[in-house]
Design a protein around this nucleic acid. Structure first.
Lengths: 332, 332
DNA sequence: CTGAAAGCGCTTACAG
DNA sequence: CTGAAAGCGCTTACAG
């Protein structure tokens, strides 16, 4: 457990100054080929690895990015985290990860711990009511990519899915199936300002058939249990419910289970459309009809946006809205 | 976007030396109550936050831990990552995350990037054949908790589930159901030395009914598609197959799908037992009978073991083996 | 109870 | 092409 070799050790071994070793290691140019060779030899022999902590102290660049998620156990999230991590690593960045449970105080704590560790930037799935927090950090110079919300601030870029469009697709599909009595299950963790899918659903419904027969509305946790509870709420308001648009696939699965448990058939009696297209959705019975969000695409856009932001401090960047797609399976 | 306040700034404002501010900020004692109060006031006013990078350069402690996973999209993993992250954060640590895809070279790259960033320790789900790599880092002084494998080295602790026992539970259950023609589906990513569940299954089978009728063996990716392929392999070897023990729940779900697709009923014609008890397992049809691994417990033990290791450098720590449990649902 | 000095391992700006 | 000096923001000895 001997000490790591330093620039100084390498310099001593070769007989040059640390400054010269630094030049070679960082590929700065301005040294003879022979010097380069001798330095690299010593680097190998001593297993020299630049200390990123020391480097970060001076350059204010740590080669790290932070991912701030809501909850890793939301099945929508892991594929995204994996994609972001891989792309970040591809760009030479090491990733911090922390989840907030959508709690703004936890988010504040997380951002603080990232900030004092000199992260180069963060990708965040914002907690409830945390826009000001994010704006603050952006103004202080932290590059931030916000997913699934919109805000304008220096050093902040926004990336999201066209959930409003997705809601529209769901509405059209249910209408085409002949559904009359519609219900929508929202999530309590999704604040009103972020209810894009619901807005799209309701607007399309109103556009197509006028706004009589307003849909039943429920609100629950974004989980299977939540979906079961949500369907019960809907049924209480509208006993002849025959079409449901659920916040996400987990909620949709819960809604299907509750419908079946109540003696109804899916999709014959109640058709259910989910959102996300998580892996599980094609393996449940009936397989879920849902709005597919291309998570691989989102992770690519988020990492690209963050790189841009890191590369050009203070810049504004155009908001990216990714298209979504209806996947028809069995539940609707 | 003005500069962060430093110890020096706080000291200047109060009219004391940076050394004194350092004492107060780190709660070292050895200052008057009045000094403390004045310093804390200035800290508030200037929004002073200690720069962890500078601190880490001296103390060799960064307040970070690294989580090295195989693949975040394995549904077994996220709940674990979430638990580890939360507990680490509770202990004041910030977590790095990277996945290796079970590739030892990617793992080497990841460990290196963590090491040069002065992580205080890592929790790793080891890649294939990477024992030497981990032993090396342990010897160099990196505290390491290895999950699901066993190795003896300084600064290394091992935490795992009693998968051998789990395999035994699966064997007994299938035997009790009257299954005669058994098959086992292993995962290609799991090296022979880590085939504990298979070993337990085979051993228990042999113990109970003697070792005639050796089970059919298949090997696939640890995914639903892999499970479908795995069942086909099994059926090719043993057309009257009636009991399957699958590597994990994803594989079990695939096996069930392939069985049903081939016109067989589950569990009547083929009974299937999975392993992990991921969320999805209770929502598929038929709901999966499986070996439950308590992920919350694992994350607690892993973080605790890592804290111990970080607290007492060079120490050996006893290997922890966590009990598992059979959950009987519909598939067997 | 308090502070001046040295230094963690690098990079930056400058001189030759 | 190369190096001596200063310094990033802290902590660690040590002295008073």
């Amino acid at each position: 457990m001997d000490r790591e070799a330093t620039l100084h050790d390498v310099a001593g071994k070769v007989g040059v100054s640390p400054r010269t070793v630094s030049r070679v290691v960082n590929d700065e140019g301005g040294y003879s080929e022979e010097t380069r060779r001798k330095v690299m030899e010593a680097v190998e022999e001593l297993h020299y690895r630049p200390n990123m902590v020391a480097r970060a102290l001076i350059t204010k660049r740590s080669g790290t990015v932070g991912l701030v998620g809501g909850d890793m156990t939301d099945p929508f999230f892991p594929a995204l985290a994996e994609g972001i991590q891989q792309r970040a690593r591809g760009a030479g960045q090491t990733m911090f990860f922390a989840s907030t449970g959508s709690d703004p105080e936890r988010q504040a704590e997380v951002l603080r711990s990232f900030w004092v560790r000199a992260v180069d930037g963060v990708i965040v799935f914002p907690a409830l009511d945390s826009i000001d927090q994010l704006t603050d950090y952006g103004e202080r110079g932290l590059p931030i990519v916000v997913v699934d919300d919109f805000l304008e601030a220096p050093n902040v870029a926004c990336v999201s899915f066209d959930l409003e469009g997705g809601g529209g697709l769901a509405a059209k599909h249910l209408l085409k199936r002949g559904c009359q009595q519609m219900g929508v299950i929202s999530a309590t963790v999704s604040p009103p300002r972020r209810r894009h899918r619901e807005r799209g659903f309701l607007r399309t419904l109103a556009d197509i058939r006028g706004d009589h027969r307003p849909p039943a509305m429920a609100q629950t946790d974004p989980t299977v249990k939540g979906g079961e509870a949500g369907l019960a709420q809907l049924l209480a308001q509208m006993p002849d419910l025959d079409g449901v648009f659920a916040y996400n696939d987990l909620v949709a699965i819960g809604a299907v289970r509750a419908a079946v448990a109540s003696g109804r058939r899916v999709p014959e009696d109640i058709a259910v459309v989910g959102c996300d297209d998580i892996e599980m959705s094609s393996y449940v019975t009936p397989a879920l009809t849902t709005i597919r969000l291309d998570r691989s695409r989102l992770s690519a856009e988020a990492v690209a946006a963050l790189s841009d932001l890191i590369g050009s401090p203070g810049a504004q960047r155009e908001t990216v809205v990714l298209p979504v797609e209806l996947v028809v399976r069995e539940s609707a």
